[in-house]
Design a protein around this nucleic acid. Structure first.
Lengths: 237, 237
DNA sequence: CAGAAAATAATTTGATCATATTCTGATGGA
DNA sequence: TCCATCAGAATATGATCAAATTATTTTCTG
């Protein structure tokens, strides 16, 4: 069910036109990004096996680039290496989510503080636009778009912070809980998902870094709490 | 000068005996670990270029495993991708070190708390032994051994915490500042390096998680502070 | 004619692929 | 139940192609 060829068809097109824009990116980079999106936006479910040749077929790429992309993702914790040569999308336990909560609430507020200090009218405008798209996605119950815009909002915030290492850490965490977010949405729907983004944005407009950080910490904790709850009900551990 | 064949000679031996212990590890894993050690213990200096074919020659390995290992390390921030296809050991700026300080002091104390809660006589004994080896290394001014034992001490602590995600984060940070530690030692010598390990150990023996965490936070901050100072003097930014 | 800039050639290095080898898990017979 | 065999998948190699850097030559200007 998770490997529906119908849904995959549109995702395959990314390598179709070699002369297209962003064709200058090396294949391993393109494969990496494609897999990343598949993971972040719930196209690859927790527990699902990821085979090299399967990815080769799906994306129409060679083995070497696919291997490299998979190594990269395992290094980031987005994929997991079983003892034998199998690779799967990790299944989170409640204990893992607790770790993720701790890590995110330790790092993200700091990034928000830095982002607020560096915010300009135009960057705040960017965030506002993303948040509007997010609200629209919620309104029409579009889970995929919700996941995408929500990630984009946070990611843009990270880039505004001008803190490459902390950004990389925060960004890497998304790959760990991303696949589980789709599960949460399936459970609770898009209506009562956390969204402290408005509060954060108005704090940023007012230049109140602490308030913005507090709002985003709320957002993070609420979101991860949903994941924990979904796991506690459905999952095993 | 950094690529002295004499010094490298002994490092090449790791692939010499295919039937040796840990020969069951795949080549890409062995290459990864070899490069990791080279970075952590100062054999590869910041700014140094890392070429695929150079590593192939140095380690006597094929291209594919080396490529995969390099991808993994770039994903972890241990190596950096220049715009063109060059890969170098990143050069830290003071700003980077500030981020590392923040991240480490946010994560490591938590790991120490968890490690203390799970400590047994035998694990504490293990730590004590590593710390003795560390003291011995300092006493005889053996920089390489100091770096190795110091890392081992922290890494063992991480594994005791039974928190795979936080451990991976903390462990990954070492790869970012590892190459700079050797520079610090060259500057300040091994005498006045931070060592709150004794304090942490006695707190752990007493079961006082908070005291242990506090000691290790001190250790972390002092250590990173040395790096910052060394960079502020010598480096550009 | 000398020196610098531009263009071109050569070498090095990275990216990708096709292919051979090794390993794992499963199937089926003893 | 256990062992042998087999199919399929992953690992690893070397070759090939493409890009980039460096070295060399050519050309232009003063």
């Amino acid at each position: 069910m998770t490997h529906d060829p119908e849904n995959m068809a549109q995702l395959v097109s990314f390598l179709a036109y070699p002369e297209r824009a962003s064709a200058e990116l090396p294949a391993h980079e393109k494969v990496y990004r494609a897999l990343r999106d598949l993971l972040l936006f719930g196209e690859l479910a927790p527990g699902q096996a990821v085979t090299i040749q399967g990815i080769c077929d799906m994306l129409g790429a060679g083995m070497t680039p696919v291997r490299e992309a998979i190594r990269r993702l395992t290094a980031e914790g987005a994929l997991e290496f079983m003892g034998n040569r199998r690779v799967v999308v990790p299944v989170l336990t409640v204990s893992h989510v607790n770790e993720l909560i701790f890590a995110r609430q330790a790092i993200e507020p700091q990034l928000v503080v830095r982002a607020t200090e560096r915010a300009t009218d135009s960057t705040i405008e960017e965030l506002t636009q993303i948040d509007s798209a997010l609200d629209a996605a919620i309104a029409r119950g579009d889970v995929r778009s919700y996941l995408e815009q929500n990630y984009r909002f946070h990611a843009r915030l990270y880039s505004m912070a001008e803190a490459p290492i902390l950004s990389a850490l925060a960004d890497g965490l998304w790959l760990r809980f991303g696949p589980s977010l789709r599960v949460v949405c399936g459970r609770v729907g898009t209506e009562n998902l956390p969204d402290q983004h408005h509060e954060a944005l108005s704090a940023m407009r007012a230049g109140d870094a602490q308030a913005a950080a507090k709002a985003m910490r709320e957002d993070v904790i609420q979101g991860m709490e949903q994941v924990r709850r979904a796991l506690a009900e459905g999952g095993s551990d």
